[in-house]
Structures are given as C-alpha cells and as structure tokens.
C-alpha cells in the first residue's frame, strides 16, 4: 500500500508569516495538531500545536498573571515551526509512513513531490485503516437486515432481496413502513378528534398486517415489523441506528423518479450502515413465493 492511496489531498496550510494566533485558530478549525507551513507552494516546515502552547503564556493561573506582557500578535508561525521536517514521497510505503510518525512523534507527515506538498498522512487516518482491518477480520455474516417497505412497485423486489440475504446469513429481518401524514385532509371543522385518532390506529394495524403478509411463512424466518411516523428519511435512519442494522434494503422507484431518487440519496448519505437499492425484475429482486405487495 502506497502513501498516495492513503494521504489526504485536501488540507489547510499556513505561511511562515501568518500571525501565531491565526495559526492556532486554523489548527482548531481543522481539528488537527499538525499543519504544514508553506511559502509559494513549497513546504518549508511543520507547525505543531504543542510548540505554540509552549511559546504562549502559562496554563497555570498563578504563572499566567505574569505573562500579561505577552502579545500573540507580534509572533508569527516562524517562531514556532519546525524547519527541516521529514517528509515522504507519494510512492513511499505505508510502512515508511508509520515508522516516520512513530520515530518523529508526529501525528501527521507531509507528502511531497517535486518540492510541493501534495498530501498529508495522518495518524488518525492510519487508525481508521487499522479499524477497518480489525473489524472485517472479526465479524462474519450479517446480523440484522432492515427492509424499507412502501407498498409500491419497488416493495416486492426489496422484500425478496431482504428475505434472501436474511436466510443466507440467518440474520434477523425487520420490515419497516413509514406512515405518511395523509390524515390532515380529514381535518375540517366539526370533525371529532377521536375519529382522527381511530383512523390513525386503524391504519397502523392495517399496515402491520400488510407487512407480515409480505414474507411467506415457508421462508422459515422470524420477521419483525415496524411502523414509524415522521419525515421518511429521518425516521428510517433513526430506526436503522436503533436496531443496529447491518444493511438497509430499499426498492428503487422507477415511476416516481424525482421523489424516489431524493429519498434513496438521502438514505445513502445518512444511513448508519450500507444501503442496498434493489430494482424490480432484476436478478436479486425476484423470488418465487413472495406475498402480494398489497395496496
């Protein structure tokens, strides 16, 4: 694995004449402890938060009172930065990067090509790589599959795929339907509140039954059903988090491209787990004995 596949290519820099208090703000904003110092695009040093702290007034109140004369505005990055920072080339191995980070006790190292800085390799990103390695070696199979059901043309495909995967992994399968706020149209003066509550309850019960009917008993699966309310995207993401779903299965909605695409995109952008979008009629979306999708 080469450093160029791991480095961050978007990062902030400071120049050597940046005032120190501005540089400190930049470090806080980027949530980093190390930032490269550049002049005309070329790397000339590294600025670390600990070096700024050491230069500044004491953190101990009884000593800090004697630091009243310290003015951060006159000091620039030049006073705190390390020159001659060791760097890596883009073809360096991740092994080299780790050895450098550990031996120099840095939390980020610049990647330089032809004297200009092209990326930063950070300890934080390397910890992410370690996490991926440890996680994927540890778990096997899916534990919980969550299928979003809208009772539309995408439903049968989504349920079929969810059932297939849950059986393959002996995972728990949950079908989720988000009620749409349709009852507002029933509200007009004189309509008793009890009728509205009753109508809502009836819809919940009816939809629950419809969900159960979607999965054939022969599948041998224990299926949970959930009815939620609210903005569909937010409600689905919330349930996926609550259930610690490993996979969210959604049917694609070819006949309502605009709305369907928006919700699908929202789910993919916000879901706590990967999202599987299944097309009706495609290989994964067919199952011989799936129940009727209902109206």
């Amino acid at each position: 694995m080469r450093v160029k596949t791991l480095m961050r290519t978007r990062f902030s820099t400071v120049s050597d004449d940046t005032p120190l208090n501005e540089a400190r703000l930049a470090l806080a904003r980027e949530q980093t402890d190390t930032i490269p110092v550049v002049r005309a695009g070329a790397l000339i040093g590294l600025l670390r938060a600990c070096d700024i702290d050491a230069l500044g007034p004491s953190t101990v109140p009884s000593l800090a009172t004697h630091d009243w004369a310290w003015s951060s505005s006159s000091l620039t990055v030049r006073a705190a930065a390390i020159a001659d920072a060791l760097t890596l080339g883009p073809e360096a191995s991740v092994h080299d990067a780790i050895r450098l980070l550990v031996s120099q006790d840095l939390d980020a190292v610049p990647v330089v090509e032809s004297a200009s800085i092209v990326g930063m390799v950070t300890t934080r990103d390397l910890l992410g790589v370690l996490l991926d390695r440890l996680d994927s070696a540890h778990r096997t199979g899916l534990d919980r599959v969550l299928v979003v059901v809208d009772f539309d043309e995408g439903t049968a495909a989504a349920v079929a795929a969810g059932v297939a995967l849950a059986r393959q992994h002996r995972a728990r399968l949950t079908l989720l339907h988000v009620l749409q706020a349709r009852w507002r149209s029933l509200l007009w003066p004189g309509r008793p509140r009890e009728m509205l509550d009753w109508a809502r309850r009836e819809e919940r019960v009816g939809r629950s039954r419809d969900l159960v009917a979607l999965v054939p008993r022969e599948s041998g699966l224990e299926v949970g059903t959930l009815i939620a309310t609210g903005g569909p995207g937010a409600a689905i993401v919330a349930e996926a988090s609550r259930l610690a779903a490993d996979l969210l299965v959604v049917g694609s909605r070819p006949h309502r491209p605009f709305l369907g695409r928006d919700l699908t995109n929202e789910l993919v952008e916000r879901a706590p787990c990967p999202v599987l979008v299944v097309r009706p009629g495609s290989a994964l979306g067919t199952e011989e004995s799936v129940g009727r999708a209902g109206a």
Binding site: C50, P57, S58, T59, D67, W68
Partner: peptide, 21 residues
Amino acid sequence: STRAIGAAQPSAATTLTMGEV
C-alpha cells in the same frame, strides 16, 4: 503529558526572572 508540562511554562515575555520561574 509533556505537552501539558510545556504549556505550563511561561512565555518569553514573562515578568518573572528565570530564578523565580
């Protein structure tokens, strides 16, 4: 941490003498 100990040191503009520090 060494960082916290470094941050506890006064700045170069301290009105204390080295001995006092």
